[in-house]
């Protein structure tokens, strides 16, 4: 299922929940794990100092500091590191999302695990908040492999997932997300919920639909799910199809809650508006912020094909 996992960490408690999942996954699937931390640069003018994540102090960005951060990372994750087949720690200075994507490509990762917004009570949380949010979005958008975003404590663990929710908008990127969702469900042997939301926000629809139209479109979407996805699932019959009308990110969270979803899988579109420009962010970000379970974003087919 997974051979190489890249865990992109803020090296702060904000990533603890993600760390838990990343290490568990690596152990379960006997995968190689790389723990990767990028410290952001303070400005465009390239600097010789960096801000320490924990203390917020200016530190000289030299080999000593890098080694110290590496040592701290190893200590922090020492307990979880036991029984991981192959473990590597790496840290460097740069723009986080650029370096994470660069490393994922170089390492040939088939899964990236990362946290989302840091928690308020963390030291440096307010400073990192925006950066982490946009880093997550930018990585999710650019990555060739699935990106698992863990923002809250994960009560189940990956191989215990019993209800996987796949949210689709029938885009090309969603096809890749489906491949991953099906592969995961099939592998674990859990139930797969295929879900679509008819976007009723006035911005998207531009007009008020009559109830007949809504029902007609729901029916059409259900047929589309059958044709586009169910037909590919072969003997697999542990699934359910649902289409609801509303605001997509709200409906998918509500639906997931209803069916006790413990993993949501969806696409984050490459052509979506620049995340830094969008005030509310994308559907994926909204789901990540609201859902109680981890969210996997899949954008491209490269790493989700059956072997």
């Amino acid at each position: 299922m997974f051979k190489k996992i890249l865990f992109a960490t803020t090296a702060s408690p904000a990533s603890d929940n993600a760390a838990h999942v990343a290490f568990d996954l690596a152990k379960k699937y006997e995968a190689e794990l790389k723990v990767f931390h990028v410290f952001g640069l303070p400005s465009r003018g390239f600097s010789t100092t960096v801000k320490d994540v924990r203390t917020g102090e200016e530190m000289a960005n030299d080999q000593d500091y890098t080694n110290w951060v590496l040592e701290e990372m190893k200590n922090t994750y020492e307990k979880q590191s036991e029984n991981v087949k192959s473990l590597d720690f790496q840290t460097l200075a740069g723009v986080p999302h650029t370096e994470i994507l660069r490393e994922a490509r170089k390492y040939d990762a088939d899964l990236i695990v990362m946290g989302a917004h840091t928690r308020e009570e963390d030291v440096g949380a307010s400073r990192y908040r925006n950066v982490i949010g946009s880093t997550m979005q930018r990585v999710a958008r650019g990555a060739k492999c699935p990106v698992l975003i863990v923002s809250r404590p994960c009560t189940t663990c990956f191989w215990y997932f019993s209800n996987v929710v796949f949210g689709t908008d029938f885009s090309k990127a969603s096809d890749s997300a489906f491949k991953f969702a099906f592969r995961v469900s099939n592998f674990i042997g859990c139930k797969l919920y295929l879900f679509h939301c008819l976007d009723m926000s006035s911005i998207a629809s531009g007009k008020t639909f009559s109830q007949e139209e809504v029902e007609e479109q729901i029916q059409k979407a259900k047929e589309k799910i059958e044709k586009r996805y169910v037909s590919q699932m072969g003997d697999f019959d542990n699934y359910e199809v649902e289409v609801l009308e509303g605001i997509p990110y709200i409906e998918i969270v509500k639906y997931s809650r209803r069916v006790n979803g413990d993993l949501i899988i969806m696409a984050h579109h490459a052509k979506e508006i620049d995340p830094e420009k969008a005030l509310l962010g994308s559907t994926v970000e909204q789901v990540v912020l609201r859902a109680s379970c981890p969210v996997a974003s899949v954008n491209r087919p490269d790493k989700v094909e059956e072997e």
Binding site: R44, G45, S47
Partner: peptide, 9 residues
């Protein structure tokens, strides 16, 4: 000037 870094922002 920008390359003189954060002290001179």
């Amino acid at each position: 000037v920008i390359n003189c870094g954060p002290p001179y922002r």
